[in-house]
Amino acid sequence: MKQMVEVSICYGTLCFVMGGSAFETMGEKLPDDLKNKVSIQGMNCPGYCNSQEYGRPPFVKVNNRLIAEANLNKVIESIRKEVEHGTNQ
């Protein structure tokens, strides 16, 4: 069986205030064909926001890929890439 794509949303207050709150409804907003292929979890602030090299918040990780300035569309697109050509299938 294929492994689930792991989506980790930064639950830190900075990410949440700067747009991360939108991911609260991500479970419902996933396209039907991806719904059973994704496991969504929160992560405590890993500190990406402290260094400019990672880009701007909010941060989301899809498997090992870090997404800066994340929004629902970017994350869904990235999940789809992982499902189609993912490294950990």
């Binding site: 639950y11 207050t13 900075l14 205030v17 405590n44 602030c45």
Partner: peptide
């Protein structure tokens, strides 16, 4: 509320902790 959120960011306060 957004000012409250911004102030938390400015003071490095993370509710998760």
């Amino acid at each position: 509320f957004e000012e409250l959120g911004a102030l938390m960011i400015a003071m490095n306060i993370d509710l998760q902790t």
